[in-house]
């Protein structure tokens, strides 16, 4: 079942002579358990696409459906609720609240939804444990490394059990090793927990973790590559590759 479905999604900023078409008739589908990377040069509209998918911005034209529900014309309150329950966000700068500890940060979406604090905490701790942060539960963001902070942010994105995770350059602020960890974690989120994950990135290395890469250029889809899961041909491929690199 498709979690995201857009038809001819168009976003134009400004009007008249200064109008800029950030997104031009983009139609995509993302299914449950699918991990999609959105790539493209800066200014290609990849962030705009993510914002529209998350209901953070409204399209100029076209339709978006999240979980089968059209959201293009939703009022602010309904969008707020949608964000709270159906979508998890992961940002480049983690955006944890500096005065709250890991558990409190991870619990935020459900706390905001009015879930009892003890219950919200319990759920947050579950996710943090899954992500290997069991020993950092009471740490404040400034006591955590970038990778740890981003893991807290991913736990936060999942705590309300949304079907869709939107990640905007989740590794943009991390070193290579932490980037790999986070990308692997996002893949795990889609494969083991069955969420649809849409990630905007400019890093090929990170994009390679996805099942599918959508290339945007000048606001429209330039190319799309489906990455086959590892198969029998793999060994041969790697060996062939070594020939190229090595002796």
């Amino acid at each position: 079942m498709s979690i995201i479905s857009t038809q001819n999604l168009t976003k134009i900023y400004g009007s008249g002579d200064t109008a800029v078409t950030a997104l031009d008739h983009v139609s995509i589908e993302v299914n449950a358990g699918e991990f999609v990377a959105v790539m493209g040069p800066s200014g290609c509209g990849k962030s705009t696409l993510l914002h529209l998918l998350g209901g953070l911005d409204s399209p100029s034209d076209g339709a978006i459906a999240i979980d089968g529900k059209p959201i293009a014309k939703m009022p602010d309150n309904a969008l707020t609720e949608l964000r709270r329950r159906k979508i998890g966000f992961v940002f480049q700068f983690y955006n944890l609240i500096p005065v709250l500890n890991a558990v409190e940060n991870a619990a935020l979406p459900v706390t905001l939804d009015g879930v009892k604090p003890s219950e919200a905490k319990k759920r947050a701790i579950e996710w943090l444990n899954r992500f290997g942060l069991g020993d950092r539960l009471n740490s404040r963001p400034d006591q955590l490394s970038g990778g740890q902070q981003q893991r807290v942010a991913i736990a936060r994105a999942l705590v309300a059990e949304p079907n869709l995770i939107l990640a905007d350059e989740p590794t943009g602020n991390l070193d290579t090793r932490a980037s790999d960890e986070i990308a692997a974690l996002l893949r795990k989120v889609s494969k083991e927990f069955g969420r649809a994950v849409v990630m905007v990135t400019h890093d090929p290395r990170i994009a390679a973790y996805a099942d599918r890469i959508i290339f945007l250029k000048d606001g429209s889809i330039a190319d799309e590559t489906i990455l086959e899961p590892q198969n029998g041909k793999n060994a041969a491929m790697v060996a062939g590759m070594m020939k190229e690199i090595g002796d």
């Binding site: 390679a208 996805a210 086959e228 590892q230 793999n234 790697v238």
Partner: peptide
């Protein structure tokens, strides 16, 4: 290249 990268990454 992406397919290769994906495979190696998985590996």
């Amino acid at each position: 290249l992406y397919q290769d990268l994906h495979s190696i990454t998985t590996r």
